[in-house]
């Protein structure tokens, strides 16, 4: 089941702050998407609007062609797991899972049981007595077992230790393969999860910075290193995201794919070309200095 998600000119104001500032993009659905942005870039706000947790102050959201806010047909197909967890703190773990089963028509309770065991969640403990990692794991169970056609994790896995996070990645891939649906994972720590994404949406200050296939983005950054004046001449006219200087040597990060003749020219001029990791590209695209 694939539900397309379309966001156009989306705005959300909190008093003086524009958490979302004219954000537009389109997701076909049925893929694993990475939503990347720094802290405070508007990731949680965006996901909260998509999940109908709050209403935007301007612009449009369409999920499967319809506005999600207070739309029963759309809302029951969406599941957002926020880092803080939208569960009742005094409830037992098993009560939380039972509640999801009672309210969600797509819920798979056997799968939930299996996941809860895998993540060592004690069913007879209350939510407030869980460790941070266990709370995150509870969120993972709620999200995966919801089998919601649009399932979103808002940094909800960052509180877990490495083995649990890897268990989450494994479960995510396995369940996505068995039951294809739309997943959106938001994060500001990219290196570890990037290989899970098919497409990546980068936002900053409530605006879209990039929306690309992850592999396309990986090919998009080039670092150019060499003598200051040679680098400057070469980089003139290119999109430079960031630069560093050490004595007479300069390194710039160029956004975009170089043409073969550009590569040749760079080598002729004695410049060193290198790849840029997705994480570095993200840092450059969203840093204060990286105003394109």
């Amino acid at each position: 089941m694939t539900l397309g998600i379309e966001v156009s000119e989306l705005r959300l104001r909190f008093g003086e702050v524009n958490a979302l500032d004219g954000l537009s993009f389109r997701l076909d659905g049925g893929k694993i998407y990475g939503l990347l942005g720094r802290n405070g870039s508007g990731k949680t706000t965006l996901l909260s609007v998509l999940a109908a947790f709050r209403r935007q102050t301007g612009g449009q959201v369409r999920i499967a062609g319809a506005e999600p806010f207070e739309n029963a047909a759309v809302m029951r197909q969406i599941c957002l797991i926020r880092e803080s967890g939208d569960v009742y703190e005094s409830d037992y773990v098993r009560t939380v899972l039972r509640t999801a089963g009672e309210l969600r028509s797509t819920w798979d309770s056997e799968y939930a049981q299996r996941l809860a065991e895998r993540f060592n969640l004690p069913p007879r403990k209350t939510v407030q007595s869980l460790s941070r990692g266990q709370k995150s794991a509870l969120g993972i169970v709620l999200g995966l077992a919801s089998r919601a056609p649009v399932t979103m994790f808002d940094e909800s896995y960052l509180g877990m230790d490495a083995p649990s996070r890897y268990a989450f990645y494994d479960e995510l891939l396995a369940d996505y393969t068995a039951h294809p649906r739309t997943f959106i994972l938001s994060t500001h720590l990219i290196e570890e999860v990037a290989s899970l994404f098919e497409e990546v949406v980068i936002i900053d200050r409530g605006r879209l910075v990039a929306h690309e296939e992850a592999d396309v983005l990986r090919a998009r950054g080039v670092s150019v290193t060499g003598p200051v004046d040679v680098v400057d001449t070469f980089a003139a006219g290119l999109t430079v995201l960031g630069e560093q200087r050490l004595g007479g040597t300069k390194a710039v990060t160029v956004y975009g794919t170089l043409e073969p003749e550009q590569v040749r020219a760079a080598k002729m001029a004695g410049l060193e070309l290198g790849p840029v990791s997705l994480q570095d590209l993200f840092v450059h695209l969203t840093s204060e200095a990286g105003n394109r």
Binding site: N71, A72, M75, C79, D86, T99, L103, R104
Partner: peptide
């Protein structure tokens, strides 16, 4: 909790 589980406010 209900809204987080896909139930509308109405």
């Amino acid at each position: 909790v209900a809204v987080a589980n896909g139930v509308t406010r109405r």
